Amino acid sequence: MKATLERTELLKSLTHVHRVVERRNTIPILSNVMLQAEGGNMRLKATDLDLEVVETIAAMVEQPGATTVPAHMIYEIVRKLPDGSQVVLETSADDTTLEIRAGRSRFALQMLPISDFPDLTAGEFSHSFTISAGAIRKLIDSTQFAISTEETRYYLNGIYVHTVETDAGMRFRAVATDGHRLAQAELEAPEGSLGMPGIIIPRKTVGEIQKLLDDPEAEVQVEISEAKIRFSMGPIVLTSKLIDGTFPDYTRVIPQNNDKDLRVDRDVFKEAVDRVSTISSERGRAVKLAISEGKMVLTVTNPESGSATEEVLVEYGAEEMEIGFNSKYLLDIAGQLNKDTALFCLADSGSPTLIRDDGDADVLYVLMPMRV
């Protein structure tokens, strides 16, 4: 194999694919990236057996061929080459090393045979549809923070995506929860998604998709089966296994009868929570909200370091109440809100609270209270 590529294009592609590769691997081939040169293109592929990213970029191919080399090593080499340089990739005569040349720099990397490299893309996809990158990004950005990191509840370690019939018509919905908070975002169901199976997209896959969605206007083709999902974004194709589990019936924890509405300036509230939580302990993180007509008093008490209070003006006309929340969870949710005014729908101090942007029905958050 011998091919010449623009350093900028090669680095951009290696940046996309090398992230998939785990730094510690018991299977040597999984530490490598596959390079395949033919026609006027170079195809790069990396996988961890659960997730696979393939990207095709332009190359001047003198001799077609394919090989695999350590992914993080070639990424670091290309990253440190001079900007604007032409990079020549050429396999040695004895087929044991890949030579990388740019200007006066020479590197030789050990290769592993292409025949050992696994392929994740086998299988049929039952549903296929097109959706904008911006729409996918909104669903992910609104829900990703609520994904559970508790490995024993593996079925919560991702975003649950499905279609659902509502009063507003058929909706394409994403949900994530860790048992303490729940995030739900939805949009109009794209044509082709109707009847798709409910799927759980793993946390690592969600993070990689997020990094690959550069242009919000770009169209993304999504293909889904019971076991896999594939995203095609221009020259990049990401294929991932899905979490094999049953997502719990999340609708049971979304309150329907919270009749005490509180409206507050999002930024004022977020900054007040951030300030008073400075006092909270790493373990506790509890902040108490004392709510009465026209105002909310936030209080944090830490027996080891002291206390903090701050008063915030609100729109609230129901009976007085006190409720406690984890301040980190409150800040996470406040950070996702986009409108100037946040709407809290409350019931009582022991029941889940519904939080959303005032006037936006597409995204909602549920937060469980704490005893304070």
Rank of each mutant, 00 (worst) to 15 (best):
V363I: 13
V363F: 04
V20H: 04
L112H: 03
V21F: 09
F247S: 01
I114K: 06
D116P: 00
A286C: 08
L298A: 06
I77P: 13
R285S: 10
L35K: 03
Q256N: 11
V363K: 09
D215N: 14
G39A: 04
A146S: 11
F172P: 00
G207H: 13
V175Y: 02
A133Q: 02
I291A: 08
G234I: 00
F117N: 01
Q110D: 07
K288C: 03
R79Q: 12
E322N: 15
E293A: 14
T341L: 08
I229T: 05
M368V: 03
H180F: 10
A37M: 03
R137P: 01
P28E: 11
L49V: 09
A347V: 06
L44C: 06
M170I: 08
S13P: 02
F247A: 04
E226D: 14
P197F: 01
L156W: 01
I131G: 00
D215S: 11
A93R: 13
T239R: 00
Q63F: 00
I27F: 09
A93K: 14
E38G: 11
L298I: 11
E99I: 14
E124K: 15
D348Y: 08
P235V: 03
P118V: 02
A46N: 01
P255K: 12
F231W: 08
L44E: 03
V78Q: 08
R7N: 12
D348R: 10
N157C: 10
E310F: 05
M73I: 13
V297L: 05
E55Q: 13
N258E: 10
P216L: 05
R173Q: 15
M34V: 04
I279N: 11
S307M: 09
D48A: 07
E310V: 07
I254A: 10
R173H: 01
K12E: 07
E293W: 02
C345S: 15
R252G: 06
N257C: 05
A93D: 15
A334F: 13
E62V: 01
I74C: 05
S105R: 10
V300D: 01
S232V: 14
S307H: 09
S31Y: 09
R266F: 09
L337M: 14
L187Q: 15
M73D: 08
